[in-house]
């Protein structure tokens, strides 16, 4: 078999592979933005889902009566945002003041998070990668 034929086949396959990799991922993109950016400019983003980071405002944690809905205020800098998260098991490290990352959609002034992750306390900085997860779906 001529070498050229082989190289063309390899190139063609690589191209298909690369194309497959780079197309159509906009819908899966989750921008990591600031709370104030979300509140002011959420309409300018094409994506639906967002990822936010901040701290749980002290004293803001509330649960629904059946304890399955969690409400808290996410504080980042001066901005705060109400977050709602439905889950029977919040991450172990979740409490007042904890650094958290939330992923979800912004609806009528409330951020409905389908994913709530806690950043581990600073002394576990090495393990901060092992974020606790809840309600994650693959």
């Amino acid at each position: 078999m001529p070498k050229a034929k082989f190289i063309i086949a390899i190139l063609a396959l690589s191209l298909i592979g690369f194309g497959w990799m780079v197309i159509g991922f906009e819908t899966e993109e989750v921008p990591f933005i600031s709370v104030s950016d979300l509140i002011e400019h959420h309409e300018s983003y094409t994506q639906e889902k967002f990822r936010l980071g901040g701290n749980v405002l002290d004293g803001s944690i509330k649960y629904s009566e059946d304890k399955l809905d969690l409400f808290f205020e996410l504080k980042q800098g001066e901005a705060t945002l109400s977050v709602k998260h439905h889950s029977a098991a919040v991450p172990d490290l979740f409490k007042d003041g904890t650094q958290v990352i939330v992923e979800g959609v912004y609806k009528n002034g409330v951020f409905v998070a389908d994913n709530l992750m806690t950043k581990c306390a600073s002394r576990y900085e090495e393990e901060s990668n092992y974020e606790s997860k809840s309600s994650q779906t693959i």
Binding site: G17, M21, V22, F25, E28, E29, V30, P31, R51, Q136
Partner: peptide
């Protein structure tokens, strides 16, 4: 190719931050 896809997805937040100024994560679905 699979390695490159995983690498691309993993470094995507780093790349978007460098190029677009905002970290964009690609979720497990991607």
């Amino acid at each position: 190719a699979m390695m490159l896809v995983v690498l691309w997805g993993t470094l995507y937040p780093v790349m978007t931050e460098a190029l677009r100024g905002v970290q964009i994560r690609l979720g497990p679905t991607w």
